[in-house]
Computed example of a mutant assay.
Amino acid sequence: MTATLTRPDLELPLREQPAAKTAIADPAALGLGAFAMTTFVLSLANAGLIPEAGFAVLALAFFYGGIAQIIAGVIEFFKGNVFGATAFTSYGMFWMGFWWIESNPEIAAAVGSVGMGVYLLGWTLFTIYMTIASLKTNGVLVTVFTVLCTAFVALTIGAFTGNQLIHELGGWLGLVTAALAAYGSCAVVTNATWKREVLPMWAK
């Protein structure tokens, strides 16, 4: 039997190893943070605490509540998170729409309180089914969406009826929503940075 000699210089090169995939950071910290801050500033005005905040929020509504949340939503699409993609992109568009109405006096006057009530009603219905969907996410998101839903209901009723007390109630509920969303943002970024659970999200 003849032995087969193998020459190292004639061996085929090893198949190139696939490049390691770059991990995509969780965009929830950005999305929740943008939603929290914009909601907080507007709710200060809605609750009657700082009326001037209703004008200051316009810059946030366009850049942070709008653009930043849309970016977070697009990243969620790439990560395969249907809930996060739908929520962040949609509420980013909500803030962009709010900015467009409120920054144009003629449009705001034409929309009026009834038109704004219709706008808020649409977002109330959207938030209702997103609240149902959130029941399979984590405790923080369930709480955020539940309180947000009640805030939209109060603001919608306030817009249709012109009842200032109900409108201000919506503002207070918005402040609670902002605080909960801020906690969620803080939890995501802190847990990711510390590489352990520091602040619980109460995952389902």
Rank of each mutant, 00 (worst) to 15 (best):
Ala36Gly: 04
Ser43Gln: 03
Thr143Glu: 06
Phe40Ala: 11
Ala20Asn: 01
Met130Asp: 04
Gly33Lys: 04
Ala85Tyr: 04
Thr124Tyr: 12
Ala28Thr: 13
Ala159Asn: 12
Tyr119Gln: 03
Leu125Met: 14
Gly97Leu: 11
Asn104His: 11
Ala154Met: 09
Ile107Ser: 09
Ala178Phe: 02
Val118Phe: 12
Phe152Val: 04
Tyr183Asp: 09
Gly139Cys: 00
Glu52Gln: 14
Leu12His: 14
Thr146Arg: 10
Leu58Asp: 00
Thr4Met: 11
Tyr91Trp: 15
Met96Phe: 13
Ala36Asn: 06
Val82Thr: 14
Ile67Thr: 06
Ala178Gln: 09
Ile70Leu: 08
Tyr183Arg: 07
Ser113Lys: 14
Val144Gln: 02
Asn163Gln: 11
Trp172Ser: 01
Trp99Leu: 08
Met201His: 07
Gly66Arg: 01
Val82Glu: 11
Met116Ile: 08
Ala151Pro: 04
Gly170Val: 03
Glu106Trp: 02
Val82Gln: 13
Trp99Gly: 00
Ala23Glu: 11
Ala23Gly: 00
Trp202Asp: 05
Phe40Ser: 05
Leu14Pro: 06
Asp26Val: 07
Ala192Phe: 01
Phe55Asp: 13
Glu168Met: 15
Gly117Trp: 00
Arg196Ala: 10
Ala151Ile: 06
Tyr119His: 08
Asp26Met: 08
Gly112Phe: 07
Phe160Gln: 11
Lys204Asp: 14
Trp202Phe: 15
Val189Gln: 09
Ala56Lys: 00
Thr131Asp: 12
Gly162Trp: 07
Pro18Gln: 00
Ala28His: 09
Thr127Lys: 06
Ala28Cys: 10
Val198Trp: 05
Leu49Gly: 05
Thr146Phe: 14
Leu12Glu: 15
Thr6Asp: 14
Thr6Lys: 11
Trp99Asp: 09
Leu5Tyr: 11
Ala28Pro: 05
Phe83His: 02
Tyr91Arg: 06
Ala154Phe: 08
Val176Asp: 00
Ala178Cys: 03
Thr38Glu: 02
Gly66Met: 01
Val74Glu: 02
Ala3Lys: 10
Pro8Arg: 12
Cys149Ser: 14
Leu155Asn: 09
